[in-house]
């Protein structure tokens, strides 16, 4: 029993080369995030700003999710540490996302939709 227990916890962690690659990607993604913000904020270059503006929120959230996933998978070793820990984390993240979305939908309706459909107003 003990032998299998030790074996299961002897996961192979990534090497420092992998860690460095992940760090570089993280910085690149952060650069893209701030870049996207600046392009839309300064309206320059104009062509890119016009193309980016309608989807900038989605782009920023996607970039942030990528960074999140990289840190969780490589620095927090979820990729090599088995499914139990990953499931605990993923389940909670799902619930957290559902909670935030639900609050935004409910209050978005209350604040911005309900006043326009309420026959009493």
């Amino acid at each position: 029993m003990h032998a299998t227990a030790t074996h299961a916890s002897e996961h192979v962690h990534p090497t420092w080369q992998t860690y460095t690659k992940v760090a570089l990607i993280l910085f690149a993604l952060t650069f893209l995030e701030v870049g996207a913000y600046e392009v839309v904020h300064r309206h320059a270059p104009v062509g890119l700003a016009i193309a980016l503006e309608p989807i900038v929120v989605e782009v920023l959230l996607l970039l942030s999710a990528l960074k999140f996933a990289l840190v969780a998978m490589f620095y927090m070793h979820l990729k090599s540490d088995g499914t139990l820990l990953s499931s605990i984390f993923a389940f909670t993240l799902l619930l957290a996302a559902v909670m935030i979305s639900a609050l935004m939908i409910i209050f978005g309706y209350l604040y911005y939709v309900a006043p326009t459909v309420n026959p009493l107003k």
Binding site: T4, A5, T6, H7, A8, S9, D81, G82, L84, L85, I88, F89, F91, T92, L93, L95, A96, M99
Partner: peptide, 18 residues
Amino acid sequence: GIDHRKLAIWTFIASECM
């Protein structure tokens, strides 16, 4: 096969997510 403390810190992290 996972150490108690490692499982606990992950559980704590999950709780902190909320």
